[in-house]
Nucleic acid binder design. Structure first.
Lengths: 258, 258
DNA sequence: AAGGAAATCTGGCAGTGTTAGATTTTTCTG
DNA sequence: CAGAAAAATCTAACACTGCCAGATTTCCTT
């Protein structure tokens, strides 16, 4: 927890100082990183107990044995702390998805995309408040920084799904996917997304991927926010079924290689 | 707005008195209903401006020219007001979905299920804060009453989707839907849902319907909560495509009538 | 007209995010 | 090593919040 041997773990979360020297973080900087980490950790614990809305700077400070104003030297406002929590949650979710795929034994009867989806779901169910933090309620006027940790986490995660859902197909196959015709301007827009991510896919494939993402996310969101309680203890089974079908349906729309 | 000629519009939202006489509401009761309506209306306006979390009893009271304590005679706590807002939002969303289907001209090229889904999406996009209220972050210890207005709204809405997605098929067809085998206990559980709603469907059909619901909801939730900004102005097109595919895929899993 | 219930008020408590300014502690520099 | 600069922390306060207690007015019923 207090280990900082290999650099600050959430470098992007540190609001100050504006420029972190790449070479060797000074003692003060390391201390600062530790303090930030402690604050974030305590805040996460508080959130896990009472939900995101119950996060109070004073309570966090109390838990840490300091006064509120000390916190203000690490986070200029409550919203900035929440932003840091969101970024970290997003990163952790992404890690969970990746390791769900990477650490699973090879089993051809379960598509790896289904494993990824189940990793997504399981992290969400295990960390409902943090999931809510990421996908629940955007902050008042919160705008994600263009290349902040959030954006990078999104890219990292979408890369996993991109690989697992569409990895086995050629560009030509993906281009010929059987979906309603996309408008030229939409095709054009999709083509100009980040060239190393979604932009590398033929537009129909991007559409299918977003589609699948929404599908997976919707089932998880409904569950986490308590709208599927009537399904009872069978939600995991329902989810697996849904994801199996989804993978089948997506693949059914991609023609075989010539 | 202040019309109350045909009874209290949100009878279920009135926390007091516990029993509303069916016959002729007294002047006092009608006044109470009006007051409740005014409070809910201003609260909705406040929420629309600054988001659900910014809802303040004092601010609402100020807008109405009264003191906070007056509000406490209509809603025992802030959470109760929010609960009323959730219930009303759910009802309004359901109405929007229904009228999206019912008021649309007959056009065989657009499945009615797609119309329903678009009604859902359009209401959500037009009322993001209220959508967030319903599907975003559950309240601290809020438990939806077993047969409260929320539950009824859910039923009303799911009935629409049930009709539009699965209406054209026989029980035998639905029972034979091509999905991974459901566990016996899951099948059993699904069979014992409300007999006039989801319980009336063969288990595979219920699974497909929940699946579809999650799919639709996920795309809308991602959009409303700002996670698809990179899709730009083409989100409506993407959504329509996704829903078209979804309907196709669901129907493809249901065998033709014998 | 009288009693009682409903509705509203004033005043107050404990909690919150945030700011201002003073003070101590640590680090860098001459 | 001494002094300056910067970082970290403190005390005190402001304006806001949800909510409670008690007094007071308004309205309906009998």
């Amino acid at each position: 927890m207090l280990d900082f041997s290999d650099g600050p773990p959430y470098g992007d979360l540190m609001p100050l100082p504006s420029e972190t020297v790449a070479a060797r973080p000074s003692l003060r900087e390391r201390r600062r990183a530790v303090a930030v980490q402690e604050i974030v950790g305590t805040a996460e614990r508080h959130i896990a107990e009472n939900g995101p809305h119950a996060l109070s700077l004073r309570a966090v400070a109390r838990s840490l044995g300091m006064t509120v104003q000390a916190l203000y030297h690490y986070f200029p406002s409550r919203d900035d702390l929440v932003t840091a929590l969101i970024a970290k949650a997003y990163g952790d979710l992404t890690d969970a998805v990746r390791s769900a795929v990477d650490d699973a034994p090879d089993d051809p009867s379960v598509p790896r995309m289904v494993l990824a989806a189940e990793g997504y779901r399981e992290w969400a169910v295990a960390n409902p408040e943090r999931f809510q933090l990421v996908y629940g309620a955007p902050l008042r006027h919160y705008r994600a920084p263009a290349d902040g940790p959030t954006t990078r986490a999104v890219r990292r995660m979408s890369a996993v799904f991109q690989r697992e859902l569409l990895g086995g197909f050629t560009q030509a196959q993906l281009e010929a996917a059987d979906i309603p015709a996309l408008s030229p301007s939409f095709r054009d827009h999709l083509r100009h997304l980040s060239p190393d991510g979604l932009g590398a896919l033929p537009p129909p494939a991007t559409a299918l991927l977003l589609n699948a993402w929404g599908h997976m996310h919707g089932l998880v969101a409904l569950e986490v926010f308590g709208h599927t309680t009537f399904v009872g203890p069978h939600r995991a089974e329902l989810f697996r079924m849904a994801m199996r079908n989804m993978v089948e349906d997506v693949h059914a729309r991609i023609p075989p290689a010539v």
